[in-house]
């Protein structure tokens, strides 16, 4: 199935076109997030009115979110291992688990946003609100998209349309999912943790 799009001749490097594309896309996506993180960091401390990040961030709460997303990477990699062994039952379990963890993360983000809005941080309120919500919801959109893909594969697998030979699909979805996870590793540190209570503002 790998060479359908190439009108039937093997690739120069022997690598699959779609996998090369996925890594190139991830490289490109790094620059999307770098631009957003740049905006956030350059505007850090530049808001002329509050609320300010250290007043609203709840580090323990976000740590749990970060942990959930980290664990979804584990379940994702287990799903890939399962399909590569041809273990379709475990594939479905781990795909479902990954999607659920992703949904928990998204739910957590939604709840966090509503709490922030109650505390007066809004998209329009100040620079912090504008840059924070844009960055985190851009990431949230990535997670949402990933959940849609994983659920699609889950349904495909249930209907018997995802064979062991098509494990590359799961591998690519996994690459995307892990990338979204590492972006959160970065955001968790440079957005949340550096607002730590012991740093003088």
């Amino acid at each position: 199935m790998t060479t359908h799009e190439t009108a039937g001749h093997a690739t120069t490097t022997g690598l699959d076109n779609r996998k090369v594309m996925m890594w190139a896309f991830i490289g490109s996506d790094c620059l999307f997030f770098a631009s957003l993180v740049s905006t956030y960091l350059l505007y850090r401390g530049k808001s002329v009115v509050g609320p300010y990040p250290y007043e609203v961030f709840n580090i323990p709460y976000t740590s749990v979110s970060a942990f959930v997303l980290l664990m979804s990477s584990l379940t994702m990699v287990l799903a890939l291992g399962a399909i590569q062994r041809g273990d379709h039952t475990r594939l479905r379990i781990w795909l479902l688990a990954t999607s659920i963890l992703g949904c928990i993360f998204l739910g957590g983000q939604y709840f966090e946003f509503t709490v922030f809005v109650e505390q007066g941080v809004t998209l329009q309120g100040n620079l912090f609100g504008s840059s924070f919500f844009t960055l985190t919801s851009f990431h949230g959109l990535h997670v949402t998209f990933g959940v849609v893909i994983l659920m699609s594969f889950f349904v495909m697998s249930l209907r018997g349309r995802l064979s062991q030979e098509q494990s590359l699909n799961i591998e690519l979805a996994g690459l995307y999912w892990h990338f979204v996870d590492i972006v959160w590793i970065v955001i968790f540190t440079v957005v949340y943790l550096i607002e730590a209570p012991n740093i003088v503002h």
Binding site: S38, S47, L123, Q124, N126, L127, G129, S131
Partner: peptide, 19 residues
């Protein structure tokens, strides 16, 4: 209505120029 480039809210026109 975000504030990225609104000078009144501290938005920096130079950020746009750089990006």
């Amino acid at each position: 209505g975000t504030q990225f480039f609104a000078p009144g809210a501290g938005g920096d026109p130079l950020l746009w120029q750089h990006l």
